[in-house]
Structures are given as structure tokens and as C-alpha cells.
Write a protein that binds this DNA or RNA. Sequence first.
DNA 1: GACTATACGGAGACAGTCTCCGGTTTGTCA
DNA 2: TGACAAACCGGAGACTGTCTCCGTATAGTC
Lengths: 191, 191
Amino acid sequence: MGTTTTAPTRPLRADAKRNYDAIVRVASEAFSANGTQTSLDDIACKAGVGPGTLYRHFPNRDCLIAAALHDSLGELERASEHLAASDDPGAALETWLFQLATHLRTYGGLPDSVAQAFRTESSPLRTSCVPLRTITATLLERAQQAGAVRADASAGDVFALISSLAWAADQRGDSDDDLRRMLALITTGLR
Amino acid sequence: MGTTTTAPTRPLRADAKRNYDAIVRVASEAFSANGTQTSLDDIACKAGVGPGTLYRHFPNRDCLIAAALHDSLGELERASEHLAASDDPGAALETWLFQLATHLRTYGGLPDSVAQAFRTESSPLRTSCVPLRTITATLLERAQQAGAVRADASAGDVFALISSLAWAADQRGDSDDDLRRMLALITTGLR
DNA sequence: GACTATACGGAGACAGTCTCCGGTTTGTCA
DNA sequence: TGACAAACCGGAGACTGTCTCCGTATAGTC
């Protein structure tokens, strides 16, 4: 289920792989510290490579974000398999929505990056995140079949709602508890 | 209730006022067409002034956005007074939330600009938008007293929720109907 | 050890932000 | 009306970040 960000037809040369790994590692740290809008030249510099090397491996910011997220995304997807097998689809969905929102907060600015990626056909970040939408759709459907969630809620809307929740939490610098409270507000409604 | 973006101790000179107005007019058009991230030098150029003139009147982007929004914001505030006098506080709140979300979509990227402004103590855009939060608090309280809305929802959370809704709608290019549907999802809850 | 495909990385083009300051214009007062 | 000071203009350019080009270096192979 792990998605590859690039399609390496042949293995990278030793020095190339070394640089690739260094860039991804540094990028992940930099994104964590300063958000997805961190200067890419800065990342290249800190990784000990020239900008040309960074842009050869990652033609644009989305590629680098996707690569930096690769591992944690895989974990999230694996965890979701467990939820899909739960015998309480309503609770499973709620757990998933929280995990999803939390994941979208891995880096500052990530909700924006992901939303923009979904508007760009060829974005590798979009490719990486499509499974998240699919999982949401699956778990939502199960919850609806179990009668735990209203039937007229669409997966697209729910995914957008959770993305926007992550965005708000990101903007306000919310804690996990804040996020949970806001999520509860959505699931149970204002009324 | 109209908020002033700058405090003109004395009236502007004729040429200064001419330029000021031209910049605001062009900026409003440019923000409508290309979002709040439009190049400011571009706006200056289209308004027929140099960048120095633009930055003297509007030291940063937020100042210009606030000025461009000034009129429509005043209208929105006036309309809210009517809602505050409604004898159906629940419906009044819902109407307000929709108007608020719609207003936050005046320009592409506006939800981001506003959210960032709220994190910047001195931002004039923040000053412009504080009344929106106040109005939301007032109408929410009335709806809660009328029993139309759960009592544990805070004004801060509701404002954040509506901002994030506007953000999502902005990102997806949603229609008003889409926005209304998403808002209904929030007010009535997923369950 | 030599050769070639692969990869490196710095110089620099380009775009956007924002400032500084020499020159111009407006409003005022005689 | 003419002259003067305060107010204002706007272009040149410093600065930052993005992204590319291409001469140079290196890994892998024979």
C-alpha cells in the first residue's frame, strides 16, 4: 500500500542515494520546525548539497513534502486496516478522523499544501494523499451502513471538513485536546 | 461601527488621496481576480503609481487587504444588527454563519490572510475582523440562551470552524450551495 | 587503469518584497 | 500672483527565495 513518490527505473548511484536520504531527513526536520514553506535552498544547504542537486531529486516542493511524509503515511495506512476490521464502525470512523486530522498537522502549512496538491493533477503529494481519501470513504461507508452516521454525508465533504479542521488547528496552534473538542463539535453538531 | 484602517490626523493632500483611492480600487479588483497573494508591485503598476507610493500608504499586505474590504465589511456589520434583533436567535445565528463564511470568501486566500492576521497583534486586518468575532459571540450567546444551540460551544471555536469552512470552500472552489451543505453538516452534526 | 554514464553544485536569471532619497507637487501665505 | 515649506512621488536597487544551466567530478564497469 506504500506509495512511491518517484519511479526509480534503476537503483540510484551510491552518492546520489546518500544525498537523497540526507535531503529528505533535513527536509523533514525543517518542515517540522518551520512548516512546509521553508526555503528549499536552505534545506539543500543544511543537507550539504547544492540547490541543483535538491531540484534534480525533487523538481518541486510537493515532491519533497511527499518524500518526507512517506514513512509516517505508510504507518497511518497500516493502522487504518485495523480500524476497517473493527466491530464498531462508528467509533472506528471517529478514531480515523482524529488520526487523519493529526497527520495533516505533521508539518505547519501541510493542510494548505495538501489542498493545493489535490488541485494539481500531477502532484506527487496528491498521489500520496489519495489513499487517505479512499480510507475515509471506506470507513464512512461502513459507519453509515451500521447506522452510526447520517447517510447523506459524502466522503468528499467529510475529507474536506477534516482537512479544514486541521487547517484551523494549525493556524491557531491548537493542542490535541483542542482538536478533539473541535472534532466533537463537528460529529455531534452545533445543535 | 466602521473601522478605520489608518488614523489620518489630517486630510490627505489631493494627489495623495487620488493615489490612495486608485490603489484600493485596483487592489480590490486584483484580489478578486487573483487572490490576496497578488503581487503588490503589480497592483502599484496597474494603479499608475510607483511601489514606494503603495508601500507608503499601505506598509504591508494586510493594510491593503483591510482597506479593500472596508466597505463590504461595513455592510456586513450593519446587516448583523438586524439579525441581533431577530426573534428567532437560532435561525439568525445560522444566517450569520453563512454570511460570515461567504464574506471570508470575498477574495481567494482571504481565510489564510485573516487567520494569520489574528496571530499578529498589530495587524490592521485583525482590527477590521475583530468585530466579526464579536458579532459571532453575541449571536451565539443569544442562540444558546434560546436553547437553539448547545451551551458548551465557544465563540472562538465557532469562529474558527466557520473560517475553516470558508478555507475549504476557497480551496475547492465551492459554490454557495456547496458551502451551505457543508455548513448544514456542521450545524446538525455527522451523526 | 581507463572510460562512460551518472551525478554534483555553484553561478546566475528571474520574480517578488520593500526602502531610500533626489526630485516634484500641493496648499498656503504674503 | 509668486514663492516657500511640507507633503508626496516613484524609480533605482538591495535583498530573498525559486529554479536552471552546464562545466566539473565521481561511481561503477570492463
